[in-house]
């Protein structure tokens, strides 16, 4: 197996919430291992227990608690260990809408990553007051703890121009998704030309092949941490488990 991976960032959002990057020298098993680690092994904080003081809204306590669990919380992983908790509280009286941004936390580093998520709309005389515990756990335990959403990878595809197309053939759309490598070695996402190769190479005959051991990852986070941190933590967790296996087998 190759010792060095070659990583190239193709695109990255300014807010650090999504990125697309190319890794060369990976086996398909490793690529899937990274994907699974991003989804299931990087822990995030999420509300787990809610103690209601008053809930006279139109939703049951359980329904409100489920919605609260899904609100992403920023997670400074250096300061927390698995199972640590942070207390949050909310007190809103109608007529008003309780938003995720109304949540008060006991730790200033932990706050809702998105502040405009409506929790519940309260009418005149209705009130929502509770205290909640957010716990640090992994996506294996509950999907609300997944830091990565919509994580996936595709083969890098090489598009070669073989020559001019036969002039009497009718040009049909050649739809291709993902990132292609051109003859000049340029990396282009097919969305840039409408996912149709005939837009980029009109009148050409093309050959499309998968580049061996090269994968283009697309990772998005729910806001609990940056994409960079999420992916690095995922890779660390893979390494830790490999080390653990090595030491246990060595005995």
């Amino acid at each position: 197996m190759a010792d060095d991976f070659d990583v190239e960032v193709i695109s990255r959002d300014e807010d650090g919430r999504s990125a697309r990057f190319l890794v060369r020298g990976l086996t398909p098993a490793m690529a899937n291992g990274i994907r699974r680690a991003v989804v299931a092994d990087v822990p995030t904080l999420s509300i787990d227990t809610v103690r209601f003081v008053e809930n006279s809204s139109v939703m049951f306590d359980e329904m409100v608690a489920l919605r609260l669990g899904l609100v992403p919380l920023t997670t400074p992983l250096d300061d927390f260990e698995l199972g640590d908790t942070v207390t949050l509280a909310l007190d809103v009286e109608g007529p008003a809408t309780a938003y995720s941004g109304d949540l008060e936390t006991s730790d200033s580093l932990v706050r809702p990553a998105d502040e405009n998520i409506p929790i519940i709309e309260l009418k005149q005389g209705q009130r929502l007051e509770f205290e909640a515990d957010a716990v640090l756990d992994t996506g294996k335990d509950h999907a609300k703890h997944q830091g990565g959403v919509a994580v996936g990878y595709r083969h890098l595809q090489r598009v070669e121009v073989l020559g001019d197309r036969d002039g009497f053939d009718e040009e049909e759309p050649h739809i291709l998704r993902g990132v292609i490598e051109t003859d000049e070695g340029e990396l282009v996402h097919t969305e840039e030309f409408g996912a149709d190769l005939t837009n980029r190479y009109p009148g050409k005959e093309l050959a499309v092949t998968d580049v061996p051991d090269a994968f283009v990852f697309h990772v998005e986070t729910d806001g609990s941490m940056d994409v960079d941190e999420l992916v690095l933590r995922a890779v660390d967790s893979l390494r830790d488990r490999a080390d653990e296996l090595a030491t246990k087998v060595a005995v």
Binding site: M59, R67, L70, P72, D114, P118, Q146, A150, D222
Partner: peptide
């Protein structure tokens, strides 16, 4: 009732954009 906090399929937070 209320807009779901996240997309059922992929888990992206969508409640954030509902009011706009």
């Amino acid at each position: 009732m209320m807009i779901p906090v996240r997309c059922f399929t992929c888990g992206t937070v969508i409640g954030e954009h509902w009011e706009e």
